[in-house]
Design a binder for these strands. Structure first.
Lengths: 233, 233
DNA sequence: CCAAAAGTGTTGAGCTTACACCCATGT
DNA sequence: ACATGGGTGTAAGCTCAACACTTTTGG
């Protein structure tokens, strides 16, 4: 039996998760209105502590599941936050993730159980601890990643139109994009499959509904795509 | 006085650091031949534990300083590794960083004190725990980042030539690059300042020594540069 | 038949690539 | 003088950005 390490501090390890959604017009965050201590009544990210016998990745999935009822959600590690005084209750290191979900697919009950609400990214409230910093960094990272990789699809329903995708990119970068060039750029990736259906919700010309070619998506994910020409990080 | 969190495990938080260097021909790693337990005699990354009263970032700098004698070294967080069984001695979460240093600038004494050696990346040995995985991911990330940002300069001395820089990129991507196009691409960034000096070591035509325009480097760092056209991650 | 949204075409500018030639240096 | 490595030039092809026209649909 091996001896344990001596003279080193055991520290609380938390996970905090930024959940992005898109309602067709605006980027949104799923935030918690805290109905528990500490910082009761204030806004925060969804979080939790890492259990002794739980892989970090498993914990991230658990926290996402508790908040959204969804499994196998897209997420990336953002950064691990470890300022000594970041949590005034007790020294806590927080591994911060961001997730992209289809806003229509998550469980209302799960959100209600956590007292979670969708908030427009632009109107986000003050949050506790270093959670503002986390969200700012997550947005920066989302912009970075979405400019290069076909990550945006994770925020849309299974079937979506190119104008919807464009609105998403315009929301992410807070800038208008040329319809014709955007369409060409997206189609040139060959990642989209025409479902043969059209968006019946539209009041005017109905746009083609596409779905992701999952196989090509997996294969090409790490290739560079340059979806957005001049990104501002 | 606030009450502490209950029912949550306190866990050891380690830091592991991948140090890249470049000797003019090959990418190298600064690895530890362990002369201490556990895993005495085996190879590993340089690491350490986070202290109770120490910011995570401070700890990373401390570990880098202990290994290299250098301060204010370029580093990025890579990922936090948290498999339950990743360290057989005790549950440990490891925040993994990678650093880029000028191989000629570090302290030999510091390296000797840690029993650290420069190993060609291509000949890297088996390492303990999940350190192989860490290095593989770090190389991937280095390729990713160096394709887009002027990060490579961190591996070179203050004054360097364009052919040296090219050799570095060829080592990072393990692929030959066109001399003329590479030179044009680098110079078009306007990041280099002609020092007026030449590389006296050369046996043939002496190449121009440049230095980084630190101001532009800071400003443009997050812009995309596309130093390498078709990267393989 | 009109307004609004969606699909497709074109063109010029700029960039990238592939390649050739000339210069400097030590032997 | 010549071999080696370093600096610069150029033309073809490609990509991207800017812009216009046509089609579909509901009212």
């Amino acid at each position: 039996m091996l001896e344990k390490y001596n003279h080193s501090a055991r520290i609380l390890v938390a996970l905090d998760c930024i959940v992005f959604g898109f309602d067709g017009e605006e980027l949104k965050l799923l935030l918690i209105k805290r109905n528990f201590e500490p910082q009761l009544g204030k806004w925060s990210l969804m979080g939790g502590f890492l259990n002794e016998t739980e892989d970090l990745e498993v914990a991230a999935n658990r926290i996402l599941y508790d908040l959204t009822g969804l499994q196998d959600v897209y997420f990336e590690e953002l950064k691990t936050f470890g300022r000594v005084d970041r949590d005034p209750v007790e020294r806590t290191v927080s591994v911060c993730f961001f997730a992209l979900i289809n806003i229509h697919a998550h469980s209302q009950d799960a959100a209600k159980a956590q007292n979670a609400f969708w908030i427009n990214l632009k109107n986000r409230p003050e949050m506790i601890f270093d959670h503002n910093e986390m969200v700012n960094l997550a947005l920066e990272r989302l912009r970075y990643r979405a400019a290069l990789h076909p990550i945006g699809f994770e925020l849309l329903p299974e079937k979506f139109t190119i104008p919807q995708l464009q609105k998403l990119y315009e929301a992410i970068y807070d800038t208008p994009l040329d319809r014709r060039n955007f369409s060409r750029k997206i189609l040139s990736t060959k990642l989209l499959i025409d479902t043969g259906e059209k968006n019946e919700n539209s009041a005017t010309k109905k746009a083609i509904l596409y779905r992701l070619d999952q196989q090509k998506y997996q294969q090409q994910f790490n290739a560079f795509h340059y979806f957005v020409s001049d990104i501002r990080v």
